[in-house]
Design a protein around this nucleic acid. Sequence first.
RNA 1: GGCCGGAUAGCAAAGCGGUUAUGCAGGGGCCUGCAAAGCCUUAUAGACCAGUUCGACUCUGGUUCCGGCCUCCA
Length: 462
Amino acid sequence: MLKIYNTLTRQKEDFHPINTDKVGMYVCGMTVYDYCHMGHARVLVMFDVITRHLRRRFPQVEYVRNITDIDDKIIARAVENQEDIFSLTNRFIDAMHEDERALGVLPPDVEPRATDAMDQMFYMIKSLVDKGIAYQGKNGDVYYSVRKFDNYGKLSGKNLDELEAGARVDIESDKKDPLDFVLWKMAKPTEPSWSSPWGEGRPGWHIECSAMSTHHLGNHFDIHGGGMDLAFPHHENEIAQSEGANDCSFVNTWMHVGFVNINDEKMSKSLNNFFTIRGVLESYDGETLRYFIMSSHYRSPLNFSDENLNNAKSSLTRLYTATRGLGSSEAAMDEVSQRFDFEKRFNAALDDDFNTPIALSILFELAKLVNSERDKDIDQASALAQLLIKLGDYIGILQTNADDFLKQGVGLSDEEIDEKIKLRDKARAEKDFALSDQIRDELTESGIVLEDSANGTSWRRK
RNA sequence: GGCCGGAUAGCAAAGCGGUUAUGCAGGGGCCUGCAAAGCCUUAUAGACCAGUUCGACUCUGGUUCCGGCCUCCA
């Protein structure tokens, strides 16, 4: 039984889809005015892991992850660059897809863009205005009246009066209540705009997700996710909009991914302490990044540091080393999978609120068994190695050829290395260990590790 | 100020009211020409103070410290 921690109830719950044939999941994606950073990477990877697991647990999953391609920051950045907003957003959407591929993240089923969903937003805003839940201010902006929604605050555990007490005074706005938020915002003459029943303008940030999620998944769907910082106000407002407009429960399970920290502080654009995915990819491969992200539970903080990334790299190296040179038929693998309980325990770990650290620890137990069987029963070792690769696939790792993973890197070419190994083999055959050790030391200097075995010498990059 | 969450061995990170987490790093051994990898083995935990219990890292209360949200943010 799959259990998921639900932000709404603050506890782990058994997960029962509304429709057992098809699970609907919506995740708030990127606002595309810059390169994705490690915080985005965590959301991308974790919901990829979650989707992969859901797909193995249910007949069909529809995973929708939106793209916010219109907002104030995008407009500001486009002005700064003197470019059209679409040329800006298209560029960063391409970059995001590149980053995603490097992390082994499979594309969502649908990736709707806010600018393609104007009609859906109009429809929802109109419905809110008709019901008297939303109103147009003197400045033309359309606002959501939070006092009209009884359950406001149910997700984030806030209540309106306390929020009110701490609220900053909003001087220029026409809001009836400082906590009301914008559904439709009038455009200044130079700004990009869309024609709406309320005038030329652009949507508020929250309405797009309400409109797109319900459009693709229905008014009431299973899972809605995003970064922890979206719980309030973004998701709270989405609930207010969707439930206000549709008069039905919006989402059953709310999932929030924890922050990536730098020196125990949240990585964020405003603190300017962020690392972009592509920046990190210059020093570490995508799979190592992915492993690093999965090495802690998705709701815990994840501290970004070279030490932790190097740790991830070593761990992955151990797993790949175990599978190196081994492989078996599917039948043999199925047989060992039946005989040992690794797969069962692995799935149980993921069923327990996607506990990737436990799942990974099971891979290490399996790797240890592969290593110890290697000299005893090579067929069994091969079948177990195949199982290790299969379980890796469940969470999107270990799908590269082990040799390729272990040899990846820069410096000497493979041919140069093979040449030196040949020279060393000759020296060893002649028992000229001084020369052979000298060659090995030189290679070590270049970051190449040699491993002698009965089957000859293999190498990897450190 | 209001509301959340956290504090686990050298580092990272989980589960669990009583029995090995796991990875890296460390000690000892096996293997190796020597290494590396691997295997075996071993040490090092649970912020602090009370309480509940036959027994608490795990439950309850308090203290301290840290982080987050309350404004755009994944």
